[in-house]
Amino acid sequence: MRRRLATFLHRHARVRLSLLLSAPLAWLGLAYLGALAALLVTAFWSTDTFTGNLIRTFTWANFEDLVTGEVYRTIALRSLGVAAAVTLIDLVVAFPMAFAMAKLASPRAQRWLVIAVLTPLWASYLVKAYAWRVLLSADGLLGWGYGLGATILTLSYLWLPYMILPIYAGLERLPNSLLDAAGDLGARGWRTFRTVVWPLAFPAVVAGSIFTFSLSLGDYITVKIVGGRSQLIGNVVYDNIGAANNLPFAAAVATVPVLIMLVYLAAVRRTGALENL
C-alpha cells in the first residue's frame, strides 16, 4: 500500500504539487486573504447606535466621516509625519554606521558588528519601548518626559536595525574599486558620496525605509507607552474596536495605512528596492 502510494506520487508531479500547496494556500490564500476581504467589506457596513449591532447594508458613511472629519485628517497627517520623521532619523543615523561596517571594518569585525546590530532585534519590542519609558520618565536618566517627540525617538530606536541591515548589505555589494576610481579621478569624499555611493546605495536605502515607514505607520503600542496623550492612526483603530465598539469604522480607518503602504510600494517599485528586502 505504502509502496503503491509512493510510486503514484513519484509519477504524478502535479499531485505532489497540489498536496504541497493545499495547506499553505488554504491557510494564507483562503483564510487570511478571506479575513482581509471580510474586513474590507465590514468597512462599508455600520453599527446601530442604540444596540451596538452590525447593520449589514452598504454605506459610504465610514469613509465620508473619515475624509470630512477634521480630527481624522489631523491624526492621519500626524501619523504620516511621525513615520517620515522616524524614517529620516533612522536614515541619518544608520547610513554612517552601515558605511563604517561595510567599508572600514575588517571582515572579522564585520561579522561581529552584524551580530551586535542584530541582537537587539531579538530583545522584546515591548521591553525596548519600556526601556525608553524609564529613560524618559521625569526622574529617569534623560528625564525629557513623554509626548510626540518621545514617540518619534522611541520608534526610531526600535526600527534602527531594520534600516542598518539593508543599507549595510547594499554597501557591502558596492565594489571598493568604484570608490578608488572616483578618488583617482579627483573626487573628494563628499563628491564620491554624492555621485557614486548614494546613487548605488539608494535601492537599499529605500528597502530600509519600507520597514521603518510601515512599522511606524501601524504602531499604537509605543504611543501608549511614551506618547503621553498623543494619538496615531493605530490608536483610532484600537479605540473604535474596544471602547467605541464600532468595528466598521475601525476597519475603514485601518484601510488608510494599507493604502499609504500600497502607494509607497508602488512608488518605490521602480528603484529596485523590493529585491533588496
Binding site: Y32, A35, L36, L39, G218, V237, I241, L247, M261
Partner: peptide, 25 residues
Amino acid sequence: LLIVLPIALPGIVTGIALSNTFHTV
C-alpha cells in the same frame, strides 16, 4: 507574496481582520 503579506501589513490590520473573522464570521 502571500507568505510575506502578514508581516508586511501593519500588525493591527492582521489583528482586526482575524479577530473579525473568528468573532463575527
